[in-house]
């Protein structure tokens, strides 16, 4: 029997607003054992009457300090707290890392096709960081689907993703005027990318809301990618 993953104390060392409703928390977690890009962790909040509740969040960074990005749900229980009153020096508990399936390992040599719907970009951003940290040169193509340019998170850093990484934006409701791609939901053509075809045997990591993930995974299967090469993670706002 292995020992349980322990709860650790996280201290907020910084916060950063990504969009009007999404905030990054930068955390110092003494004893954190390290994690793989794509893994998640559990956050536990405890009220002064002893009531506690938990939520899962993907880790947004490849290393430490840990970063989480929390999307605020207006009538939520946890996300308004994490995106609202929390400030540097405040503490809460977390444990992890969890999940060994939706991950990218620095030793992986296959090209990587990353597909993000909305805030589903969070664990995929950790993949880009891990690749850079490891000095990996595997080709990466990231497709980010967002409603409008204002909904894009990490837009500045994704504008300069580094050598060997391409980032393509899919705007579902309103595209910038200079974008040759008209606004519209993600289509099979958005995923048919030279260098990332089934013959190139890429690893496909898809993260986003349920409907988005189902649509993209079906498109990838239709393009000829084997189901075993398509790893999915649901990522939606949690209260």
């Amino acid at each position: 029997m292995s020992t349980a993953i322990p709860w650790r104390v996280a201290t907020v060392v910084g916060t950063r607003d990504e969009t009007p409703t999404a905030r990054t928390l930068v955390l110092d977690v003494p004893g954190w054992p390290g994690h793989l890009a794509g893994q998640h962790l559990d956050v536990r909040l405890t009220a002064d009457d002893g009531y506690s509740t938990q939520r899962s969040y993907s880790v947004a960074s490849a290393g430490v300090p840990l970063e989480l990005m929390v999307q605020r749900v207006e009538d939520g229980e946890v996300s308004p707290y994490l995106t609202g009153s929390l400030e540097p020096g405040d503490r809460f508990e977390l444990r992890g890392p969890v999940g060994r399936w939706f991950v990218w390992r620095p030793r992986d040599t296959a090209p990587v096709l990353l597909v993000a719907g909305g805030s589903g970009v969070v664990p995929l951003r950790a993949v880009l960081q891990a690749r850079r940290t490891a000095g990996s040169t595997v080709p990466v193509h990231l497709v980010c689907s967002v409603r409008s340019p204002a909904d894009a998170v990490y837009a500045d850093e994704l504008a300069e993703p580094g050598e060997g990484v391409d980032v393509a934006w899919v705007h579902t409701r309103s595209a910038p005027p200079d974008d040759p791609r008209p606004a519209g939901r993600i289509a099979r053509a958005d995923l048919d990318v030279p260098g990332f075809s089934p013959a190139d045997e890429p690893l496909c990591l898809v993260c986003g809301p349920t409907g988005f993930v189902e649509t993209v995974a079906d498109h990838l299967v239709a393009l000829g990618h084997p189901a075993a090469a398509i790893r999915t993670e649901r990522f939606g706002p949690t209260g």
């Binding site: 104390v9 909040l45 405890t46 002064d48 503490r91």
Partner: peptide, 8 residues
């Protein structure tokens, strides 16, 4: 457990 200040 540590108490999360202000969490109800």
């Amino acid at each position: 457990p540590i108490i999360s200040k202000g969490f109800r």
